[in-house]
Design a binder for these strands. Structure first.
Length: 277
DNA sequence: GCCCAGGGAATCG
DNA sequence: CGATTCCATGGG
């Protein structure tokens, strides 16, 4: 299947792309700032840019998006250049992975702004998805920048300048002090982007764990969703349950090199079936 | 009231 | 090391 990308009026169109469900990608718990309207069009802001995106027939439409906006940002954000079909084919030699990737076939790994990923997944700890979204909404409305279409995600510098009391409006509980610590360490350059992008995955994980409130699971989410490190494998409660039930605790060899993508398929599969298999 | 939620820090032994 | 307990908050 060949993918065609072109502009039409003010929009950019992606035609014939395999493995791209907008809904499954934007609402699978990797990002928390996208919302569907009554027509099924998705609206969100990423890295300070507002986007409306939807599917019409087999065409993905990015509304009011120029070719240069698409090339310079959205192409990377939606991981357009990765062949998910090839990956699914490879991991499907394992029967269970085949089932899981069938259910989650439309999911892509979003390349989010790293600091947004850090902050979002600190907020996610011991929390549920609807409340994570509410806290992040309050964070953006209170401390982000108003732009056409909503609010940007506040920078680490902005949050670093706030006090713990200022963050009280978030109602984020014990996580507020972690958000503040992460903001300060990101703002003052204590976290090495070089290690996070290019370092050994264990070194990258340790680098993020310098932040209070960041442990192995949050670190892997940040590496996967913020730095494009698809070999990261976040182990949350759902994944732990799924691993025990499906694989007796050990990820099959077929997943090697694609752990993060497999993780998304398993997470989606586990939640959808509730593992009553 | 109780339990749980895309965990992690602190405090044990 | 591994195992427990506590952490804020809100919904079911």
């Amino acid at each position: 299947m060949s993918t065609k990308i072109y502009t039409q009026g003010n929009d950019t169109i992606i035609e014939g792309i395999d493995c791209f469900s907008i809904e499954d990608t934007l609402d699978c718990g990797q990002a928390f700032r996208w919302q569907a309207d009554e027509r099924g069009h998705w609206h969100g802001i990423a890295s300070g840019r507002y986007l409306e995106i939807y599917k019409e027939n087999d065409r993905v439409i990015l509304k009011n998006t120029s070719e240069s906006d698409f090339e310079s940002f959205w192409r990377g954000y939606f991981d357009i250049d990765r062949s998910y079909a090839e990956i699914i084919e490879k991991i499907s030699t394992n029967d269970t992975l085949k089932k899981a990737s069938n259910v989650g076939r439309g999911i892509r790994i979003l390349k989010q702004e790293p600091w947004e990923a850090v902050c979002s997944f600190i907020i996610s700890q011991n929390n549920n998805i609807p409340r994570i979204k509410w806290i992040i909404t309050r964070l953006c409305e209170n401390f982000g920048e108003r732009i056409d279409g909503g609010y940007t995600f506040p920078t680490a510098q902005r949050i670093a300048a706030l006090s713990l009391e200022d963050l009280g409006v978030l109602r984020s509980g014990f996580r507020a002090k972690y958000i503040l610590d992460g903001a300060k360490k990101y703002a003052n350059g204590e976290i090495s982007e070089e290690i996070l992008y290019n370092g050994d995955i264990d070194a990258a994980r340790s680098e993020l764990e310098k932040i209070k409130g960041v442990g192995p699971k949050v670190a892997d989410c940040v590496l996967l969703f913020g730095y494009g490190r698809i070999e990261a494998f976040p182990r949350d409660v759902w994944i732990k349950r799924a691993m025990e039930k499906l694989f007796d605790g050990k990820l099959p060899d077929e997943a090697a090199g694609y752990e993060g993508i497999v993780q998304q398929y398993l997470f989606h599969y586990a939640r959808k079936t509730k593992l009553d298999i």
